[in-house]
């Protein structure tokens, strides 16, 4: 996939813009303005050379919740309030998605690391912090997907929406994969000490914990 102008923008700038825009949309109270903003963000996807599939994929996991929220807000408050809430959530999701899809994780992590460097004298290790960030970013979609899969399996067995039936297998599965992911990271970085100064974060970032999680799942 070719790199668009959004891909080329510095990660720090995109993160700052995202934080600013994310905070700003909270203050929009007119649903029509909010829908316009949503369309604007949606238009940014083709600008970023991301297909319609990427856009749909960002919103699909939220769809059931959006429908419920829309109906609940519409029936209890008003339909304009419902439109406002839904458009705001969709806008936030697409904006965040846009940043994550157009920014390499390495760049995001490097930015966080740079922002944290002044805190090093206070005992904050930027390398470890950025590793935690990058891992969490990678785990987010995997765990959401996994939750959905466990949910389907439990429904098929007639366990329905029992949170226990859902949470327990998910947590045990995720914890079991943690060992292998840690081992894989240590194997890739060549030693088990993330304090080691000569280690470059890029080397760790290139490792894809998704792959490890997937292997463990089978």
């Amino acid at each position: 996939m070719s790199r668009s102008i959004l891909h080329r923008l510095p990660a720090g700038l995109k993160l700052t813009a995202l934080a600013a825009a994310g905070s700003a949309v909270i203050w929009v109270s007119d649903w029509r303005v909010m829908v316009d903003l949503l369309l604007l963000v949606a238009l940014a996807f083709p600008v970023a050379r991301l297909g319609r599939g990427a856009l749909v994929q960002q919103l699909r996991p939220l769809l059931p919740m959006l429908v419920v929220l829309f109906l609940a807000q519409g029936l209890m408050a008003s339909w304009t309030e419902a439109a406002l809430v839904i458009a705001r959530i969709a806008t936030l999701v697409l904006m965040a998605g846009l940043v994550t899809l157009t920014t390499r994780t390495e760049d995001l992590i490097a930015t966080v690391e740079r922002l944290l460097t002044p805190l090093a004298p206070l005992g904050v290790n930027p390398g470890k912090v950025s590793l935690a960030f990058s891992l969490a970013l990678r785990f987010l979609p995997v765990i959401a997907e996994e939750a959905e899969r466990v949910h389907e399996a439990q429904s098929a067995r007639g366990l329905g929406n029992s949170p226990l039936a859902l949470a327990l297998p998910l947590i045990v599965r995720v914890l079991k994969s943690a060992e292998d992911i840690a081992d894989a990271i240590e194997a890739r970085s060549g030693h088990d000490d993330p304090d080691c100064p000569q280690e470059k974060p890029q080397r760790r970032a290139r490792f894809n914990p998704l792959a490890a999680l997937k292997t463990v799942k089978e």
Binding site: V68, A132, L135, F139, V174, L175, P209
Partner: peptide
């Protein structure tokens, strides 16, 4: 006092897991 790679994996997993809990439909 120091965190191992494994600790960091656990920390990241539970941050992501807590985020995933938001996907459960809320019960009113």
């Amino acid at each position: 006092t120091s965190l191992s790679t494994r600790d960091i994996v656990y920390i990241a997993l539970f941050a992501a897991l807590t985020a995933a809990l938001a996907l459960f439909p809320p019960i009113t």
